[in-house]
Nucleic acid binder design. Structure first.
Lengths: 157, 157
DNA sequence: GAAAAGTAGGTGTATATACACTTAGTCCTC
DNA sequence: GAGGACTAAGTGTATATACACCTACTTTTC
C-alpha cells in the first residue's frame, strides 16, 4: 500500500537472486574458467597453456596465415591475438613475417613450435579423452553443438 | 617402410588438425569470448561489465560474504577475485570490512552497488531474454545442464 | 594519378585470470 | 599456554582479454 503505480527497486529485482544462476554468460564463463584450469593443469608439463596450444594448433592447420584470419578462426579479438602471438613469438614457437600485401603479417609455426605442439599433444589427448568419456559421447556432441549455436547467436548482430 | 615400430611426430599428429576443433576447452572458451562480448556490449550503457555484474549479483544474494566463499560461488580463483573486488571497491560498489574472525574479510554490496545493479538489470534481462529465446527453451536448459556437468567434472579432481 | 575510402595491424589502457609465495590470524595438541 | 598445524587473504608476476584510437598500406573513384 505504500506505493501503487511505481515499483521499488527491490520489487523490480525481487527475483534477481534466483535469475542470476540462469545467466547464460555467467555459466559459460564459469565452465570456461574451470575447464581451462583443468586443461592448463594437465598441459603444464609441456610448458604450453591451453590458449597457446590452441593458437599453435590452428596455425599448424592453416599454414602461413594472417593475424586477422587467425583471430577469426579462434574467435579472438584481433588485438588480443596480437598480444598472445607476441608471447609465442618471443619463445620462437611461431614466426611473423610481412605478407605480400604489406599491410598483412603472416604467422607460421616454427620447427620449435611444431615440436612444442607434438610434445604437448599426448597431454591434451589424455585430458580430452577423459573429459569426453566422463561427459559421455551423446552429451559431449550435444554440448559442442549447443556451444556452436551459442557462438553463432552471439556473433549474429 | 622407412620406419616400422616407431611413428614420426607427423604421423602421431596426423589427425591433429581434425581433432583440434573437437577440443572441449577450446570450444567453451570460444563461446565464452563471444557471449561475453555480447553481454558486455549490451551492458555497456550501465557501466558494468558482465563479470562485475555477476559479482555484484552474487554478493547481493549472499549478503555479507567472505572472499573465499564468493570465490567458490563464482568459480573464480580467490586471487583473481581479490583483484576483481579491488576494482569494485574503488568504485564504491562494494564495501570490504574485517570479519569477526580477523583473517576474514566480509564483502557487502553498498547502496551505490545496489543502484548500479538495478540500473544494469534491464539491460541484462533484455539480452538474456534474447539469447534464451534464440536458443529455444529446450536447448537453453540443456546447455545450462551440460555446462553444470562439465563444471562438476572439471572440479572432480 | 591524387584524394577518399577501405583494410591490416599495432598501442595505450584497463580489466580478468591464476600460480607460487607470503603474511596474518586461529585452532589444536601436549 | 607455547609451538605447530591449519586457514583466510594478499602480492608478485605473467598471460588473456578487448575497446578506443592510431598508423601504414591498398583500392577505389573521379
Amino acid at each position: 500500500m505504500a506505493q501503487k503505480g511505481r515499483d521499488t527497486v527491490k520489487q523490480r529485482m525481487g527475483k534477481f537472486g534466483e535469475e542470476a544462476p540462469a545467466c547464460v554468460c555467467f555459466n559459460i564463463r564459469k565452465a570456461a574458467r574451470a575447464i581451462s584450469q583443468l586443461y592448463d593443469d594437465v598441459l603444464r608439463p609441456s610448458g604450453l597453456r591451453v590458449t597457446q596450444f590452441s593458437i599453435l594448433a590452428v596455425t599448424r592447420r592453416l599454414g602461413p596465415v594472417t593475424v586477422t584470419r587467425l583471430a577469426e578462426e579462434t574467435v579472438t579479438d584481433r588485438t588480443t591475438l596480437t598480444r598472445n602471438l607476441k608471447v609465442l613469438g618471443q619463445q620462437k614457437l611461431i614466426r611473423i613475417t610481412p605478407g605480400l600485401d604489406r599491410r598483412e603479417r603472416e604467422v607460421t609455426l616454427t620447427d620449435r613450435g611444431g615440436a612444442a605442439l607434438a610434445q604437448a599433444y599426448p597431454f591434451w589427448k589424455k585430458i580430452q579423452a577423459q573429459v569426453t568419456q566422463r561427459l559421455g559421447p551423446d552429451r559431449y556432441r550435444r554440448l559442442l553443438s549447443d556451444l556452436r549455436a551459442t557462438l553463432a547467436l552471439a556473433r549474429m548482430n
